[in-house]
Simulated assay, not measured.
Amino acid sequence: MADDAQHRFDTAERDAVYRAIALRRDTRHFQRGQVVPKAQLQRLLQALHQAPSVGLMQPWRVIRVADAALRERIAALVEAERQATALALGERSAEFLRLKVEGLRDCAELLVLVLPPDDGTVFGRRTLPREMALCSAGAAVQNLWLAARAENLGLGWVSMFEPAALAALLRLPADAQPLGLLCLGPVERFYEAPMLEQQGWRQGRRLSDLLMQDVWSEEEVQDGN
């Protein structure tokens, strides 16, 4: 196979990819009244579209919410779920309600990620049909997230909504399901660490705590062992 230079990354390019991964954040705070230029938005959507998918099924659709009244109605659905989540959290309810969990009213662009009706793809997903569709859609969002970070834009994935209510609001076809509200736009600053860590809600686990060898084990596996 030919060693084509366009397929090789130099050290600086490689480091930039890892830097974008390390600095990616789930963003909740946006600069109000900003816009994402059309050409920039197109680059971001193209990055999403280039994501891998099982059997090349590309199980994602994206709805761009441009209508202000519709955005407000979606925000109301999110607020209803925020309150329901607080109730379900019991003794952590008040602590949860102090967290900012979405930026729907402030972000420059609001995109809805939708899982479309199943197209019957069997390749690679005969035993896990829905799971592989969901994994593929998640990979598309990760592409968008990293591209947004490289463009110095924030992106927040909001999952607090009742799927059936949002589906009805967006007039989705039967068997389609909304998976996320993607808030995108300029930010005043990026979080130094994940927001939930900064706010003391939860701490991320160490990589060594999540690695195992050969079979499942609850014991910690140290890097290099």
Rank of each mutant, 00 (worst) to 15 (best):
L44T: 03
R61P: 06
L77T: 02
L70E: 12
L41A: 13
V62S: 06
V54K: 05
A68N: 12
A76M: 08
G55H: 03
Q42V: 12
W60F: 07
E72K: 13
I74G: 02
Q50W: 14
V78I: 13
R71H: 11
H49D: 11
M57W: 05
P59A: 04
A68E: 14
A75R: 11
L77A: 03
A80L: 10
E72V: 10
R61W: 00
A76F: 02
A68S: 15
E81D: 12
R71S: 11
L48W: 02
V65Q: 05
M57H: 02
R73V: 01
E79V: 11
R73S: 09
L45Y: 01
R64A: 15
P52W: 06
V65P: 04
P59I: 03
V62M: 04
Q50R: 15
Q58W: 02
R64N: 13
Q42E: 15
Q50D: 15
A47V: 08
Q58Y: 05
V78K: 05
I74E: 03
A51H: 03
L44P: 06
V65C: 10
D67I: 11
A80C: 05
A66K: 14
L56T: 04
E81H: 08
L45D: 07
A51T: 09
V62G: 02
E81M: 12
P59C: 05
P52C: 08
R61C: 06
A68W: 07
L70F: 09
L48Q: 03
A51Y: 04
R73L: 04
V54R: 07
Q42R: 13
Q58E: 11
A75V: 04
I63V: 15
S53D: 04
V62Q: 04
I74R: 00
P59V: 03
A68H: 12
R64H: 15
A76P: 00
P59R: 00
Q58D: 10
A75P: 01
R64L: 14
E81A: 08
A76C: 03
A66N: 15
S53M: 01
V65M: 08
L56D: 08
M57N: 08
R71K: 15
Q46L: 13
